[in-house]
Amino acid sequence: MSLHPADAAELLVVSAEAGGSAAVAVLVGNAESAAAGRRFAYTAARPGAEAAVHGSFGSDGLDRAAQTLLEGIVADPRGRGGLHSLSVEEESCEVYVEVRRPVLELVIVGAGHVAQPVSHVGSLLGYRVTVLDDRPDFATRERFPDADRLVRADFDDPFRDVPLHERSHILLVTRGHKYDYECLIRALRMTPPPGYIGMIGSRRRVRATYVQLLDEGIDRTLLDRIHAPVGLDIGAETPEEIAVSVAAELVMHVRGGTGRALKDVERVAGRFFPESTDT
């Protein structure tokens, strides 16, 4: 039986929220055929759940080909959705594939005035946002209306209640470098490492933190994993502007961009309307 579009959409959402990956193929080639719009889904194995297929195109051959295609796309971190063709014996047909990877997490450590706009922008970008602080008056619902989780933490063991993994994007905006240090020493020793570690601070404060980490035996090469001072250079001054700068760096980290102005990357004026050289 085909999968209803609502069930297919739900599979993708539930899987992403549970930290898994899933893909759905929809038959779109030859749009007027009776099979067009049929769906077949694959949900990848994750802790606590086995890999599974859902729905059917109404042909065993097509289902097998679809399963192979979807497994391959999900298993490859660079695997992309979009149009693909399924070949069964002599025939081939076109499917549109949607892939969902686990929801990205943004863990903001320190619930001060920069954390607030970062939490907003983080939710806007689709991150599951956790705000962590040791002071009960700071990580509050009033101050962080759209954060997914507010955690009261102790800096002796800051991530005790916040499990970190490859999809965790950690942002340190604490009120002192000893707190940054406590977080970094743990984050840097994790395997696999968290997806991103950013830390706000002046050059001086960042340097002081690095000195302490090196003294504690952290390998010099690990320091390169830390994005500090955090953010892209856009001249940000206010907490809101800093949040935009940090968010821009996060997007760049996930999507892979240059951080340059598109104007300079594309050079539309210079490329298509070169200045005449004879003036």
């Binding site: 085909s2 999968l3 069930d7 599974a52 859902h54 729905g55 059917s56």
Partner: peptide
């Protein structure tokens, strides 16, 4: 109506 998710 239509297919609930489940092993095919």
């Amino acid at each position: 109506a239509t297919g609930e998710s489940g092993p095919s």
